[in-house]
């Protein structure tokens, strides 16, 4: 579905990602893990079109998408739940969630999807008219995931969902995400919490200071000695 080849990305003169190769097949759950500052968010921003690569290619279903503007990439089917949630703080929960469906014209399906995301996150239903900035951290993350789902993307990129949240809340949100995955959505999970990500994923890539150093089956990577030592602390 998504194929990234020899991708180089930087901010001005400073290169952040070197020679990235990554492939996502349909209905797969891929984890992209690595420590803080490894370039994970930079990669997601590049896929979504917020950053332009220096060189290399990003193909969605065989079509070159690198260099396209963000709205076209979303229209082609790649959505993102960005790091830090990035809700529209002054807008209500309902307005935030509906912003996810901004490009969609299929009004009836949008209504069904809205009911679906509320069933995933019943707490959101109770807070529809509340301003998003007033939500707790966990609720904000739910709202951000709900907004991401409303675009009904083929591929959803989820960035650092667990950041700053209590484990029980993280578990709840991943529970909801796994329900979405069962509805045939392909997901790329970016996590600093390596164990958590590997538990969710089919395959995983490890990003280390701008390079992909390890990749493979997620369950096997849990037993990989390098990963155990560097990321799992065992």
């Amino acid at each position: 579905m998504l194929k990234i080849e020899n991708l180089n990305v930087g901010y001005g003169e400073v290169q952040v990602l070197w020679d990235i190769n990554l492939e996502i097949n349909k209905s797969e759950v891929i984890a992209l893990v690595g420590s803080n500052g490894a370039g994970k968010s930079t990669l997601l921003y590049t896929i979504s079109g917020l950053l332009q690569p220096m060189s290399g290619s990003i193909k969605l279903d065989g079509r070159e998408i690198s260099g396209l503007p963000a709205d076209e990439i979303l229209h082609l089917g790649i959505g993102q739940v960005p790091q830090g949630r990035r809700l529209f703080a002054g807008m209500t929960v309902k307005e935030n969630i509906m912003m996810g469906a901004y490009l969609r014209k299929d009004t009836e399906r949008v209504k069904e999807d809205f009911e679906f995301v509320l069933s995933l996150f019943p707490q959101m239903g109770e807070r529809l008219n509340q301003v998003a900035g007033s939500l707790s951290g966990g609720e904000q993350q739910m709202c951000a995931v709900a907004r991401g789902l409303m675009a009904n993307p083929k591929l959803l990129l989820i960035d650092e969902l667990s950041l700053g949240l209590a484990p029980i809340i993280v578990e709840n949100i991943y529970e909801a995400v796994s329900q979405v995955i069962q509805r045939d959505m392909t997901v790329l999970i970016v996590e600093q919490d390596v164990l958590l990500a590997l538990e969710q994923a089919d395959r995983a890539y490890v990003l280390d200071v701008g390079h992909i150093t390890i990749s493979g089956d997620a369950k096997e990577l849990m037993d990989n000695p390098t990963i155990k030592e560097a990321y799992l602390g065992v």
Binding site: H75, R86, F88, Y102
Partner: peptide
Amino acid sequence: TKMGNAIRATGMDIDAAKLQGVK
């Protein structure tokens, strides 16, 4: 309106608005 919401969203967080497909 959708456009009105897009305008407000853009004022609050321009990158997040781009990620929702706002031109």
